[in-house]
């Protein structure tokens, strides 16, 4: 046979199973594993060790399943308390929000009720005037002399009525 064929390569590779580590290696491997685990544990800060121990204990005692019902009830109670607090505090929060937006103005009366007479509309009109006096006085002919309405009325020589 002149060349290695697939079958021979497969056989040769399978013989690599016989390559073994030094004698006693597998017997000592577990001891080495434990030693490294201990070393790693000692390098960790104390709080982390305590945390891990606590988690291990909880896991071992299966605290999750034992405490699932009371925890669920407690969670529901806490949720209910939070929601009720939110509902109770809601008007106050709305007032704060309105203060932040002055354009919408404040409620008309102390009770916080909205009425048609509330100054909301007034405020809107005040904050948005149509045109100022100076603006209205200006025309596109800024350089021209001021014109009056009387100028456009034809002159009449008839005497004025007197009562």
């Amino acid at each position: 046979m002149d060349e290695f064929n697939d079958n021979e390569i497969t056989r040769l590779l399978r013989l690599k199973r016989y390559e073994q580590p030094p004698p006693g290696y597998f017997e000592n491997f577990l001891h080495e594993f434990h030693r490294r685990q201990r070393d790693e544990l000692l390098r960790q800060p104390l709080w982390r060790i305590c945390l891990e121990r606590a988690r291990e204990l909880m896991f071992r005692l299966d605290v999750r399943s034992l405490a699932s019902y009371p925890v669920a009830v407690a969670a529901v109670l806490v949720c209910a308390a939070v929601i009720s607090l939110k509902i109770y505090q809601e008007p106050e929060k709305a007032q704060v929000a309105l203060q932040d937006a002055p354009a919408l103005s404040t409620p008309a009366n102390a009770e916080g009720e909205w009425t048609l007479a509330s100054p909301v509309a007034t405020r809107i009109f005040r904050t948005q005037p149509l045109r100022s006096f100076d603006q209205s006085a200006q025309t596109h002919r800024a350089s021209a002399p001021p014109r009056y309405v009387l100028d456009s009325v034809p002159v009449s020589y008839e005497p004025t009525f007197k009562f």
């Binding site: 021979e8 056989r11 013989l15 016989y18 390559e19 073994q20 030094p22």
Partner: peptide
């Protein structure tokens, strides 16, 4: 870094055939 070959390879059928 080759490890020692186990002596049982000498009794392996495939090894003997090869």
């Amino acid at each position: 870094s080759l490890d020692d070959v186990d002596a049982s390879i000498q009794n392996d059928r495939e090894f003997m055939e090869l």
